[in-house]
């Protein structure tokens, strides 16, 4: 007890010093805080993914054995998979392994998960990366055009097409493209199965259709959000002033709106890149593409929990990382935080 009592002034002092540091370095302290929050979120979601599944009533051993599930057989399988140990020690073993790059072995195939996961993640990132490189500039550009020609026909056209595109399920877009570009005019390849031995050009040709699908789905979301972000900016008083001063439309947008629009646009882009992660799952299944999404869906179908947990954690980590990057970039883009108070 006496220790804590003598600690109080010291901790108060530390707190005050921390506040002084925060006032002095507003940007770095916010970035550090955001990094810490992401780490915490990653830890919490790993607990959720691991313990959440374990706490649910489904039991792999009885599902796996089916009719042959005698109590003795179930107990044997549980002991073999290590399911009879307490949950906390199993979580620690699992998380510790992942920190060293070991995701365990698959229950269904008995193979090491990490090997599969890394090669499939490379494939998925290739797919998502190509889609992002095409979609981001196109979407932001179209969003700007829509704002510039607000309420005239280019805006209305873009608005209508994107409303339809937002509403279409990914697999519908994918099969439409397959029907047009593979069956009716043989321009692209289906299924988009890539091998390690393929050259980059061959790979790119093979993934053209899945990339096109992802671009179509993501671009509409991104464009609508860019348009909304810039429009809400345009209703600010200083924008009105700029217009009343008689400045040209492009000058207003590039000089006055852009610096302030940067943070919301960065957010829009990151949010949609995160959306790409989910889109990848469906598109990979449609095109029989050997990526992480397909891996996870297959594992869910046979209830291969270690694979599901591993894939789930990687997906969550990428998602958290993207959101963190967006927040940190918008902290950088905020000029108010550049100078110490």
């Amino acid at each position: 007890m006496s220790e804590t009592r003598s600690d109080i002034p010291a901790s108060l002092l530390a707190l005050r010093r921390l506040q002084a540091l925060r006032a002095r370095y507003p940007m770095s302290s916010r970035i550090l805080g955001r990094l810490g929050l992401s780490l915490l979120l990653l830890f919490a979601s790993s607990v959720l993914i691991f313990c959440g599944i374990e706490a649910l009533p489904g039991d792999f051993a009885s599902t796996y054995l089916g009719q042959a599930a005698t109590p003795q057989a179930v107990a044997n399988i549980r002991a073999e998979l290590g399911l009879d140990e307490p949950m906390v020690s199993r979580y620690l073993a699992w998380a510790g392994g992942i920190l060293q790059g070991d995701f365990g072995t698959s229950w269904a195939s008995g193979q090491v998960i990490a090997d599969q996961l890394w090669s499939r993640m490379g494939n998925s990132l290739l797919l998502a990366g190509c889609a992002a490189v095409i979609a981001v500039p196109l979407a932001v550009g179209l969003g700007l055009v829509a704002v510039l020609y607000r309420d005239r026909w280019p805006d209305k056209l873009i608005n209508m097409v994107s409303l339809a595109a937002v509403s279409l399920p990914e697999f519908f877009v994918a099969y439409l493209l397959i029907l047009w570009l593979v069956v009716q005019t043989p321009l692209a390849v289906f299924p988009a199965t890539v091998y390690d031995s393929m050259s980059l050009i061959e790979k790119l040709h093979t993934i053209a259709l899945p990339v096109a699908t992802l671009v179509l789905v993501v671009i509409a979301h991104m464009m609508r959000m860019t348009r909304a972000a810039i429009l809400s900016l345009l209703s600010q008083a200083y924008m009105e002033t700029a217009a009343l001063k008689g400045l040209g439309a492009w000058r207003i947008i590039l000089r006055h709106a852009m610096p302030n629009a940067l943070a919301p646009i960065i957010n829009v882009v990151a949010l949609n890149l995160a959306y790409l992660i989910v889109g990848v799952v469906v598109v990979e299944v449609v095109f029989v593409y050997p990526g992480m999404g397909q891996y996870m869906v297959d594992a869910v179908t046979v209830r291969d929990l270690p694979v599901v947990q591993g894939c789930g954690l990687v997906f969550a980590a990428i998602y958290i990382l993207l959101n963190m990057t967006a927040d940190i970039l918008s902290i950088f883009a905020n000029p108010r935080l550049r100078h110490p108070r």
Partner: peptide, 18 residues
């Protein structure tokens, strides 16, 4: 916390056990 995992991924994880 629930929103830190993409919806579809979360659903896949839960449906693998239930």
């Amino acid at each position: 916390l629930l929103m830190s995992i993409p919806t579809l991924i979360f659903a896949l994880i839960v449906l693998s056990a239930l």
